[in-house]
Design a protein around this nucleic acid. Structure first.
Lengths: 245, 245
DNA sequence: CGATTCCTTGAGACAGCTCAATTTCGGTGG
DNA sequence: CCACCGAAATTGAGCTGTCTCAAGGAATCG
C-alpha cells in the first residue's frame, strides 16, 4: 500500500494536461513537484474505507479505482469510477465518506492534504481546474442518476458500455465507424453495483446483446462493438446526446 | 419571468451567510452588489430549459426549484432540488443541460455570467465557497445514487422525507424529540420523479407510513412526523449516518 | 359551488430478483 | 502441452415488488 516508486518528472507525466495540474505553468509545476509523492496499490486493495482518515488528496496516474457506498445489510452502490487524471479526496475534509478500491494496479500522485489546501489558495490555476473537474463530476453523477432512476436493465447496460467505450477511445470518437474493441475493467458484479442491478441480470442482458449481434464477447474482459451506433440506440437517450456531450 | 423587484442590500439578505457570497468581506460584497440583479419566477414557470442559453448564474434567495432531465419518451428524473442559498448555473458553460423549474414563487439573485467568471478569478473567497458548495452538491448527488440504485420504494420515501425534514429544520435537528411538522413542497409526481418511482407507488407508500403511524397527513402539503427516529429507521441507512452527516 | 387538479385505491401484468445448478475462463503446476 | 482448480459467468425456474391501466375521491381555486 505504500510501495515507494520511481520519481516521475511532472513534465513527462502521462496525465500532465488533464489532471488538476493541467493549467499550471512551469514555476507552479515546480512547487507541486516539491510536495508530491507516489503511492501504488495492487488490484483489489482498498485505497480508503468509508470513515477512514484521509491524510492526502491525489490524482490517479494509472489504473482504475471505484468509489462506492454500502448499506449495513450489504447492498452496495458504486457512485464513481476513477480513471487516470481523476482527482481523489476532498480539500477541507479529513475523512472519506466512501469506500475507494483499486480494481487494477493503481498509481496515485499524492499531496498531503493540509499543504495542498494552502497551495490552492495561492495557485488559482489549480483551484479553477479543480472546480471545473468537480463540476464535470457533478454532471456525470447527475447523468448517472437518470440511468439509475429511469432506465431499464437493457438501457443501463448499453449506457455503461457506451460510457466505457467513449472514455477508452481517448480520441473522442472520431472513429465512430468500424468495429471497436474495448477493455472492460469491471466484473459482472462491479457492473451490477454500478447500475443498481444484480449480477445475474447484467449477465443476461450481456447475453441478449450478444444474441442480437450488438456486441461480441472475447474472453471475459474484452468486448467488441461492431457498430457503436447500434449500441447507442439501445441507451434510451436521444442519439446525439451520447455523442456531442 | 423578468419582473423587476426591489433592491435588497446584501447586508440584510436572508442568504447572506450561506450562499456563494458567504465568506465575502464588506468590500467584496460591495463589488458583487454592483453587478447583481433580481429575477422572479412564478410557481410552475421554467427558469431554463435543457439546451437553453443561460446568460447568468444566480443564487436562490427564496422559493424552491427543481433540476431535472428528461428522455424523449417522457421519462423524467429529478437530479437536484434548489433551495434558498443554492447556486444555479455553471461558470464556464453557456447552456444548461438541465430543465430548471420553479415549483413555488422563486426569487433569484443573478450575476451576468461573463463578469462573474472574471470576478471569481480575483475573489478567492467566492471561488473557494463555490468549490465547497459544488463538492457538497456532489456528495448529495452520490447519496442520491445510493437511494436510486439500491433502496426499496419504502426506503426511498423515508429517505426523502428525512432529507426534507432535515433541511426545513434549519436548526440542524437539535430537536429530534417531539413531533415535527414539515411543509412538503413537492407533488406526488415530483416526489416520484425524484425517487425513480411512479406517482401511484409514492402514494401507496405514503399511505402505508400513515397506516403504520409513522407519519400523519394534514391536507396535501403538510406532513406531521411524531417521532423522527421511527422514520429514520425506515431509510435503510445506519441510523447515525442520517444524523451526523 | 362547480371545476380542475391532485391524490388514493384496486386488480392484473411484467421486469428484475432470488436461489440453484452448470459452464467457461484463466491461471498453475506437473 | 495438458490436466486441474478456483473464480467468474451463464442459464434456468419461480417469486415478488413495482408498474400499468383504470376508476373514484378529496383538496384548492375561482
Amino acid at each position: 500500500m505504500n510501495v515507494p516508486s520511481l520519481d516521475i518528472k511532472c513534465a513527462q507525466c502521462p496525465i500532465r494536461h488533464r489532471a488538476v495540474c493541467a493549467r499550471c505553468e512551469a514555476d507552479e509545476l515546480a512547487r507541486l513537484e516539491e510536495i508530491k509523492y507516489y503511492r501504488n496499490y495492487e488490484a483489489g486493495q482498498p485505497v480508503a474505507w468509508a470513515g477512514d482518515e484521509m491524510s492526502f488528496v491525489a490524482s490517479v496516474v494509472s489504473g482504475v479505482a471505484t468509489v462506492s457506498q454500502t448499506l449495513e445489510d450489504g447492498r452496495k452502490q458504486m457512485v464513481g469510477l476513477l480513471l487516470p487524471s481523476d482527482f481523489v479526496g476532498r480539500p477541507g475534509r479529513d475523512r472519506s465518506p466512501y469506500d475507494i478500491t483499486a480494481i487494477g494496479d493503481v498509481t496515485l500522485c499524492c499531496f498531503r492534504r493540509k499543504p495542498f489546501e494552502q497551495l490552492i489558495r495561492v495557485m488559482p490555476n489549480v483551484a479553477e481546474r479543480l472546480l471545473d473537474m468537480t463540476l464535470d463530476e457533478l454532471d456525470a453523477a447527475r447523468e448517472w442518476m437518470l440511468v439509475l432512476g429511469r432506465k431499464t436493465a437493457r438501457e443501463k447496460i448499453a449506457s455503461l458500455l457506451v460510457i466505457i467505450a467513449r472514455r477508452s477511445t481517448t480520441v473522442g470518437l472520431s472513429n465512430i465507424d468500424g468495429p471497436l474493441t474495448i477493455d472492460l475493467p469491471l466484473t459482472r458484479e462491479a457492473m451490477a453495483d454500478y447500475l443498481g442491478l444484480t449480477l445475474e441480470t447484467v449477465s443476461r442482458q450481456m447475453s441478449a446483446f450478444k444474441g442480437d449481434g450488438i456486441i461480441q464477447l472475447e474472453g471475459k474482459r474484452k468486448v467488441v462493438i461492431p457498430d457503436l451506433r447500434l449500441l447507442m440506440q439501445e441507451t434510451g437517450d436521444d442519439m446525439d446526446g451520447g455523442l456531442i456531450a
